[in-house]
Design a protein around this nucleic acid. Structure first.
Lengths: 332, 332
DNA sequence: TTGTATGCGTTATCAT
DNA sequence: ATGATAACGCATACAA
């Protein structure tokens, strides 16, 4: 079932079929009609591969995220995908699994698939294939995270602002010893939030105790461990800030196991507003940014690059959503 | 940068390059060496589209899920993707968003992309494009859900067993009025679990009150609504079973808002064991099946079909994981 | 073992 | 407005 069959059925040449199908103005109404009915009668579908081969355009983009099982990235994926769909691009989604090797494997796959562009939430210091991408001049956009020394447009969140909002809020509630459960320094958001935390603690005149800082890897198990470390100290924190939702959940479990009650015994604030955080008991205070919008913006930015429009990096603001976990009472 | 450039650089013909690259035995050691170094020197990557066009094999498969933001499906996606990667297939992931129109859009996209096969968690009664697929003889596998009248291999869970495990457990704890928060009847798992619930309630001699049954749509908001309906009845249930995790979370919120305490005032059991369910306060009792394994099996099954091996549908067992939400005390 | 030539399904160029 | 035909990058049948 190829364009030839359609041409034969419609009694025209393949050129005419192609023109009708691609909406060229150089077609007669009669031809359009004949072709359209032949297409539906035969159930013909153009072969995207052949089309891409000939036109040097695949209408496919790659989306490489670090962990789709992280609700935050699932939402980013959804936003990006919807934006691509609206522009009739197909999205190839790949999951790096927080692993640099898999990241390279998928970048390689994207390259051989000749996608028109790639969105990536990178980890590590620019792996080999990330450099190859730059060299191959494949349009590239970073989402959520960045890599130093890469001059790539990106859509990120204002991490410093987010951290400061959280710390200011906790300070306003009288906390002076805030524990921080951070992300890995190999990821830009991990570094940015860590630095911002140190700065915020200093600027608000709070305790600058190294024992109040623990490092995780953005997964829940590390959140448990980090919380355990913080709480086992001689002078444990009265509030904790987790750099992502999975680690916050891990911390939640550890706190419960120690018989403490979030909100009253210990304040907890998390990054990333996951849908069900407000359903928890108590509901969780979060530093939120719109993950879906992040994905949408990244995709639009990528399409701008692909289609030669000017592309400007964007930094999304974060906002604080106050709930009971940090106040001990229902939010106003 | 094509195979021609490599041939020129290596001083051999394109045929030789192609043979070396595809691991044909009909190559000399000398040729292999020359080609390999030319490839790395030039940074050449074969064009997957051209290769697919010529060889009628794309090494790409489509994965169409109903909602990637549902942690259960995120895990299925991960499993499927890893299995594909291991067999060096690329996965095109698409998100139907619990919407039949988008399901059709993506099936269409898969068809024009000429993927080698498709895995789908279907909804509705076999949409038009699902039929087209069957007709196009594209290898197809259902995961988690099925559609009646489609003779397609599938990987599903033993829903009846799962429901019975949950009901038996609650009955053993003295509950006679169990509320059920079901999924939509347009989805096979929704129907299967609903029917199984009726059967289990009858076989255990519990209250068969229609007011104990509420229907949701597998999203959290509907879980809140359903829980509200059940709890507002004249004789509210003492235990509830939710047909998926998102609805369970919604129910959790509603219960909290009513000032009730899960575990002591009201037992709650959910389908799908999400990683953080054990971190909740109290930890949630669940009817679990291994979502990642489900995805892996589905992908392996699809590859079996694609590569002409015999393909047998598989039904995964479910198991009950008892935690405090249904017992009011720490599990043994 | 190697090279040459053809075709995969499509778009684009050139005539007509 | 339409038809014939080359070309996209690769794999493979065939010849050498």
């Amino acid at each position: 079932m190829t364009i030839k069959d359609v041409a034969a059925r419609a009694g025209v040449s393949v050129g005419t079929v192609s023109r009708v199908l691609s909406g060229s103005p150089a077609t007669s109404a009669a031809a359009r009609e004949r072709v359209r009915s032949a297409v539906t009668e035969l159930g013909y579908r153009p072969d995207a591969r052949a089309r891409a081969l000939r036109s040097a355009r695949s209408n496919a983009v790659g989306l490489l995220l670090s962990d789709v099982r992280n609700p935050f990235f699932a939402e980013v994926a959804h936003g990006a995908e919807q934006a691509a769909l609206a522009a009739s691009y197909v999205t190839l989604l790949a999951n790096a699994n927080e692993d640099t090797t898999q990241q390279d494997t998928y970048l390689e796959a994207f390259l051989t698939q000749r996608v028109d562009g790639i969105i990536v939430a990178p980890q590590g210091e620019g792996s080999g294939n990330l450099r190859a991408l730059e060299q191959a001049r494949t349009p590239l956009v970073f989402v959520d995270r960045t890599v130093e020394d890469f001059d790539v447009p990106s859509v990120t969140a204002d991490n410093a602002q987010g951290v400061d909002l959280a710390v200011a809020h906790l300070a306003a509630h009288g906390h002076t010893r805030i524990g921080y459960i951070g992300g890995p320094p190999s990821v830009s958001t991990g570094r940015a939030r860590h630095d911002a935390f140190l700065a915020a603690v200093a600027s608000h005149g709070l305790d600058e105790d190294p024992a109040l800082i623990a490092v995780g890897d953005f997964r829940s198990a590390s959140g448990s461990t980090a919380a355990a470390t913080l709480l086992a100290g001689r002078r444990p924190p009265t509030a904790m800030l987790a750099a992502d939702s999975l680690m916050a959940v891990g911390a939640l479990g550890e706190v419960r196991r120690r018989g403490l009650r979030i909100g009253t015994d210990l304040a907890l604030v998390s990054f990333d507003d996951i849908e069900w955080f407000k359903e928890l008991d108590p509901p969780l205070t979060v530093v939120a940014h719109d993950a879906r919008a992040l994905g949408e913006s990244a995709m639009r930015l990528l399409l701008d690059v692909i289609e030669g429009r000017p592309a400007e990096s964007v930094v999304q603001p974060m906002r604080l959503v106050v709930r009971e976990s940090s106040t001990g009472r229902p939010a106003d």
